[in-house]
Every structure is written in structure tokens, then in C-alpha cells.
Simulated assay, not measured.
Amino acid sequence: MINYAKMTRAFLSLLLFISCTTTAEDLVESYPEAAMRAKVAIIIDDLGYTMAEGRKLAAIPFDITFSVIPFTPYGKKIAHLAHRNQKEIMLHAPMETLAQVKWERGLDTSMKESEFITTMEKMVDDIPFVKGLNNHGGSKLTQNRPRMDWVMAFLSRRALYFIDSRTIANSQAGKAAQHAQIANRSRDIFLDNEKDPEQIQVQLEKLRKIALKRGDAIAIGHPYPETLEALRKVLPEFAKQGIELVSVSKLLKESHKT
């Protein structure tokens, strides 16, 4: 007669042995189901200047988050397109940089608080269905803690999350977000600082390893043809390995649970 209790104990012992002697990556290669809890959020930002980029991105059958620049010619239309295709929408908020050349109309360290908040209101209201915000530029503004406190207090009132694009190492955004107790993270990987297809795939591989090691990861890219082609090629492999591609809000919600 088969002793099922003994077989169960042996099977659990085997699993314990495997987990103690292999890395997360080894488990995924042998047991794809082991990676089912690994989640990746990919943000494509700089959207709003051409409708074609939005259409191409919407056609990729994965849960990619759209980050749209306010006051752009096609920003609203792209947000509506993304929403119809069940994609999450973020605001890609222009913020002051260290460069002399101004970015788009956006947030500036020279603004008084009332003007600063009014500008934020106009930006958020310009793009429909927004769930959160990440900074466009911001190498100067994100270092300014009082201004970042203004940003986070506003996002708290609107129940929006914040993702730090991390355009400079000394960013104060994360500390300000934690102080305001809003959902927030920093990006882990930029996908396409180099618009080389092979290099983008290298970055996607780094993203995969971070997600498997830590349980989740966030990447930011742009709607370049090279980036979209790399996503079409690599994301099906993520799925086969059991890595779930999710919206930013879902990743934040799940990571908060843990």
C-alpha cells in the first residue's frame, strides 16, 4: 500500500533541499513555476508628440505602463488609446534640469508654492486616467527637498503614486514620498540610454535577474523603434519563465503586501 504521507514528506524535503542549494535563476530554468511571484513593471515615457508611437506601443500585447507628457499635441489621445487597450497611464511630469536649456512647460525651483501647485494641478488634469507620476528630467528639481515635499503632498491629496526616474543620484524624491506616506519606488533599469538593439536586450536581461532575485523590478524606456522591437522579442520569453509583467500600481500594491 502506498504511504502518501511519507511521499509528501519526501517531496517537501526535496523542495527544501533545492531551495537551499540553488539560486532563484537555477529554479526558474528547471522549474518555471518557481518564478510566478516575480513581477516586472515597464514604463514607456516621453509619449505625447506622435500618435504613431502610441499606436505601436498599444499593439504590444503586454501590460506596459504609458507615461505621457502633459500639454503635448497627442497626449490626451494617447491616454484614451491606452485606456481602451487596458493599459495604465502615468503623468510624465517635466521638472527642472541642471542643463541650461529649458524642458517643456513644467515644475521649476523658481516657482512660489502657489504657482507650483497650480502647475501640478494643470499637468495632472491635462492627461486623463492618470494613476501616478514620474519625473521627466528633474536633475535639479528632484534634489530640492522642499519642492519634492510639495510634489508628494499634492500626490497624496490626489491619491497618486510616484516613481522616481532617478535622473540624478542625489534625488530627494524617495525620502519625500516616504515622509508623505505615498506609494513610491525608484526605477531599477533604464532600458535604452543606448539605442542599440543588443544593448537594450542586455538591459532587459539585467531587469530579469533583478526581478528573480528580489521578486520585482521596474524599468523605464522610450518609444524608440529599437526599444519596441526588443520588447516584442523578449517579453514572450519573460512570460515563458513565469515572470509576470504588471502595471506599476499592481507592482506597488503587491510589494506593499510583502
Rank of each mutant, 00 (worst) to 15 (best):
E115S: 11
H136W: 03
K213T: 15
E194D: 13
E115C: 05
T118A: 12
T227Y: 03
G137A: 05
F190E: 03
K122N: 13
K195H: 14
F190C: 03
L228P: 03
L231C: 09
R158M: 06
A173N: 02
V130C: 04
K195A: 13
N170K: 12
P223H: 07
V151G: 00
Y161T: 12
F190A: 06
I218E: 00
S165P: 01
A180P: 02
L141S: 04
R187S: 01
V234G: 02
A180S: 06
F154W: 05
L141E: 00
W150G: 05
P146R: 10
P146L: 10
R208K: 11
G221A: 12
K122T: 14
P146D: 07
Q181I: 12
A230N: 08
N193C: 06
M111V: 10
G137V: 10
R232N: 15
Q199H: 13
E198R: 14
L155N: 08
A183F: 09
D164Y: 02
Y224K: 13
A217C: 09
A173P: 01
R232E: 15
T227V: 04
I189M: 05
Q199V: 15
E115G: 09
L160D: 07
N144V: 10
N184F: 11
E121Y: 05
P128K: 08
E198V: 14
V124P: 00
T119R: 06
T167I: 09
I163Y: 03
A180R: 05
R187E: 02
V130I: 10
E226R: 09
G132Y: 07
M111H: 09
K209N: 13
K140V: 00
L133V: 15
D126W: 07
N134T: 05
K213M: 12
A169H: 07
E229G: 12
A230L: 09
A159Y: 08
L228G: 05
I163S: 00
I168Y: 00
M152P: 01
S171M: 08
A217I: 13
V202N: 10
K206Q: 14
Q178M: 11
G215N: 04
G137P: 05
R158V: 08
R187V: 05
R157N: 13
F116I: 08
D125K: 15
E194T: 15
N134W: 02
A180Q: 06
F154M: 07
F162C: 11
Q181D: 11
T142P: 01
T167C: 02
K195R: 15
R232F: 04
G221L: 12
A230C: 11
R214I: 15
S114Y: 00
L133K: 06
I182N: 02
T167P: 01
W150M: 07
P225C: 04
S186W: 00
F116V: 10
A217E: 08
M120I: 14
R157L: 12
L133E: 00
Y161N: 07
S186K: 12
I117V: 15
Y224L: 11
L228T: 08
Y224Q: 12
L204M: 12
I168Q: 00
Q199R: 15
A176F: 02
N134E: 01
R158S: 01
Q201K: 15
K140C: 04
E113I: 14
A169T: 14
N184T: 14
H136C: 01
E229Y: 09
D188Y: 07
S171K: 08
L160C: 01
R145K: 14
L141Q: 01
L212I: 14
Q172L: 07
N193V: 10
